[in-house]
Simulated scan of single mutants.
Amino acid sequence: MWSYVSTPRFLTLPDGVCQTQVETSVGKFAALEALPVSGIPERWPALLVPGLTGSKEDFIAIMQSLALSGRRIIAIDMRGQFETPGPDDPGAYTCAALGDDVDELAAVLGEGGPVHLVGHSFGGLVSREAVIDGRTKFASFTLMDAGPAAIVGRRQETGRTIINELPLGVEHIWSSRLEADAVAAGVPEEIVCFLRKRLMSNSVTGLTVMAEEVLTARDRTDELAEIAVPTLVIYGEGDDGWPPHIQADMAGRLNAECIVVPGAMHSPAVEAPETTAAALTRFWNAAESRYRTL
């Protein structure tokens, strides 16, 4: 959240990954799509939902690998994020409202059939709403670097600081904080330019409400545990969003599989893409096998 670290190391789309839009009954969503080499999906599709200041581009590094297993993979910008427009209505950006959007997207992507759902960071809290509301039968659910309740630690403090500065404008936040952090970390100029463009494209209302949501989210783990859907908790060993032990405890409460990604922090899809893609593919294959034997 609120950082360059969830940004792809490159922006050029690999072969088999393309820009698209997903049209739903509640509007169009900017997306990236990856298909198997044959162009014909043989397994159930997957929907990838990014974090608060992230975007569909955060999944570029894993999409091709995921599609090679025979799936259609769709990564989206949520309402008000980057290339998906959003209204000025604050009510459109609560976890519940954004979760409704996920339901609509899954209905289109799955064409009435099961869909694998992955939510990264704040996207995990949003996706959790869609699973709990029961409108959609998901093939599986993955919480990637997403905790059971409000975010804590360094990212919590950063979120509070930036919310306080949002009235000064997004450009102020970029120039006074994020740009300097990115440059100091040696982020390539191309990526720095992308980061600025992405941040400036976000709905200010959306950023404000979503930040408030991630800072005040209540624990819904027990409710999620009652939903009969295969669940995976996966996170970087050095996650600085929700501490690893909190996510491990959540996995235990959910009776979910738990995978720690070595060498990764808050964005394993960026920091350890092959490990992350392999873990997701194995989990999805197992979930489909169990689903079909029921």
Results as ranks from 00 to 15, higher is better:
22 V>D: 06
118 V>R: 00
14 P>Y: 12
257 E>A: 11
42 E>Y: 11
59 F>R: 00
39 G>Q: 08
36 P>D: 01
239 D>I: 00
50 P>L: 08
227 I>W: 02
242 W>M: 00
180 A>T: 01
231 T>F: 12
74 I>A: 10
33 E>L: 11
236 G>M: 10
45 P>A: 14
41 P>Q: 10
256 A>L: 12
82 F>V: 14
66 L>I: 06
164 N>H: 13
122 F>Q: 02
196 R>S: 12
256 A>N: 12
150 A>D: 01
234 I>H: 04
134 G>T: 03
135 R>L: 13
82 F>D: 13
193 C>V: 11
166 L>I: 10
123 G>I: 07
14 P>E: 02
98 L>K: 03
129 E>D: 05
7 T>Q: 06
209 V>K: 09
218 R>Y: 03
59 F>K: 00
284 W>G: 05
238 G>A: 14
27 G>S: 10
239 D>T: 01
96 A>L: 15
103 D>C: 05
209 V>Q: 08
59 F>M: 00
101 D>W: 10
136 T>N: 03
100 D>C: 11
267 S>N: 13
126 V>E: 02
155 R>M: 15
9 R>N: 12
261 V>T: 14
138 F>E: 05
138 F>A: 08
102 V>I: 06
7 T>N: 15
41 P>V: 15
278 A>Y: 00
293 T>D: 13
206 G>T: 01
212 E>V: 01
232 L>T: 04
116 H>D: 08
250 M>F: 03
121 S>L: 00
159 G>V: 12
162 I>R: 12
72 R>A: 01
144 M>A: 15
287 A>D: 09
246 I>C: 04
116 H>R: 01
183 V>C: 02
237 E>C: 04
286 A>H: 04
138 F>I: 11
193 C>W: 10
271 E>V: 07
267 S>F: 15
